[in-house]
Amino acid sequence: MSTSFTLANINQSPKHKKQGGWLSIEVLGAILFVLIMIAASGVNFTSLFSSNNLADTEQALATLRMQIKQLYTSSPDYTGLTTASANKSGIIPNKMIKSNGVRDVWNGAVTIEAGTNPNTFVISLAEVPQEACTKLATYQSGSWVDVKVNGSTLSQNAIVSDAANQCTDTNTLAFTSN
């Protein structure tokens, strides 16, 4: 007597039924692993996005400062410098130009004006979140005449601790340059 095995006979054997259950558990385990990896990458993506916003702002701030200095090279001082005049001069970095005006990456207003001393100018950034405030306030700290967080001037000797103490949930930073 010849025994023929068909796919139907193999799938009905107790050995293969048991393996089918293990296959389901393995698939569920793989799906769970993939979901955990997606969740972990989401946390890293948020951190990366926040770091990218900070780097973009630092770069735009440095570029804007340099552009203002170059524009006013032949002027005796910064009298007449405003956000509107800087925008008309085309010196504002493209990353700061939005449909609703000159804005930082957090959509806070960016203002540019001559300082109280006409030999200085001030670049202010609004709506800076707490996680970026201290790092941004201490960015190139030695090259600014002064830095203010929420209206308080930071001490050059203790700029990091002062910035950390002044930063709240949402902040306005003012950078004065000459």
Rank of each mutant, 00 (worst) to 15 (best):
L81M: 03
T46E: 08
A132L: 02
K95A: 11
N44W: 13
S47W: 11
E58V: 04
S13P: 05
D77M: 02
Y72W: 10
T116W: 05
L28S: 15
Y139W: 12
A84F: 11
K95W: 02
H16G: 11
M37Q: 10
F121P: 08
E127Y: 09
L48D: 07
I38H: 00
S24D: 10
M96W: 03
I91A: 00
S99E: 10
F121K: 04
G21R: 10
T63R: 09
L136C: 07
V34Q: 10
K88Q: 14
E26S: 14
Y139H: 13
C133P: 10
N11A: 14
D104Y: 06
V128T: 03
S50M: 09
W22A: 12
A109N: 13
P14S: 06
I123F: 03
K135N: 13
N107S: 10
R65E: 11
V27S: 14
A137R: 05
Q12E: 15
D77V: 04
I112Q: 04
V43F: 09
L125Q: 06
S47M: 13
Q70N: 15
N119F: 09
E113H: 12
L28P: 03
W106M: 01
T120H: 15
L125G: 02
T138P: 00
I112S: 04
A55G: 06
F45V: 01
V43S: 06
L32S: 14
S89W: 01
I97M: 02
N53Y: 12
T138D: 08
K69N: 13
T79I: 07
I38N: 00
S50H: 09
L35W: 07
Q130T: 05
L54Q: 07
V110K: 03
H16Q: 14
S50I: 09
I123N: 01
T63W: 05
N11E: 14
A30S: 14
M96D: 00
P129D: 00
V27A: 15
K88W: 08
G80S: 03
G29K: 07
I68A: 04
A40S: 13
A132Q: 08
G21S: 11
G20P: 06
I10T: 10
T120K: 10
L125Y: 15
S75Q: 11
T83W: 04
T82Q: 07
L81Q: 03
V34P: 00
A109F: 05
T111R: 07
Q67P: 04
Q130M: 05
G101I: 06
